[in-house]
């Protein structure tokens, strides 16, 4: 019998204005920017662009050296193996904000680029906030602890691992997330990741941002 994949839909997680500002490149906000962000949030909600879908499945986990085996699929990555250390299961998931946000970004790229910038930031904030909510709900419902999530393309886990994650979850059919030839996802505000599940994980290690080695401009 093959593994089962669950689907969930979320809405109503409140938008975080300062995070949206941060993703848009602003380290501080003024009234002008807050007004713009609020008007974009209102439009996003009106256009139903704030609905999050996720499909997921939990697998027993075997880590041996650099190789993590999940649902019989071997992922070869030192960084992933490290992220999963101390875990005995792995939660594999794919999630998306859907195509509505891409439409808003596309429209405003033509009509009003500052709104496009904010919608881009809004989409980034939305998918992160909803994913945090999904993972904390998952932990609460199962009574288990989750390690930080790890995505194809992070560290030494090649982007090609997307193909394996897609084969495991079939998110095309379940939540409408598709993989382009260049291994990018459409809709663009989509995430795939693997999170370790363990009994005795510490609460740290939650956020991939602080742990990331890159000096990217969005780093907290």
């Amino acid at each position: 019998m093959t593994h089962k994949v669950c689907v969930k839909t979320y809405r109503g997680v409140e938008a975080n204005i300062s995070e949206i500002a941060r993703y848009s490149g602003a380290r501080e906000t003024d009234d002008n920017l807050i007004a713009l962000i609020n008007s974009c949030i209102a439009e996003g909600e009106r256009e139903n662009a704030a609905v999050y879908s996720v499909c997921y499945s939990a697998s027993p986990l075997y880590v041996s050296g650099d190789v993590s085996t999940i649902f019989g699929v071997q992922f070869k990555s030192k960084n992933l193996a490290a992220a999963l250390s101390g875990c005995d299961e792995a939660l594999v998931f794919a999630c998306t904000m859907g195509i509505g946000i891409d439409r808003l970004i596309k429209k405003y790229s033509e009509v009003n680029p500052s709104r496009a910038l904010i919608f881009q930031a809004y989409g980034a904030e939305r998918i992160e906030s909803f994913t945090d909510r999904f993972l904390s709900d998952y932990a609460a419902e199962t009574g288990k602890k989750l390690a930080g999530r790890f995505s194809p393309g992070y560290g030494d886990l090649p982007l090609e691992a997307q193909r394996d994650v897609f084969a495991l979850l079939n998110p095309e059919k379940r939540i409408g997330v598709t993989l382009n030839d260049g291994l990018l996802m459409s809709p663009s505000k989509s995430v795939t990741a693997i999170a370790g599940i363990g009994k005795s994980l510490s609460e740290c290690d939650k956020n991939a941002c602080e742990n990331c080695l890159s000096g990217c401009e969005f780093k907290r």
Binding site: A21, S24, G25, A26, R27, E28, D30, N32, L33, L36, N112, P113, S114, L117, I118
Partner: peptide
């Protein structure tokens, strides 16, 4: 000079 951020710059540009 980092007194104005990207969204502000863009709004002016628009």
């Amino acid at each position: 000079e980092k007194r104005i951020y990207l969204p502000g710059l863009l709004m002016s540009a628009e």
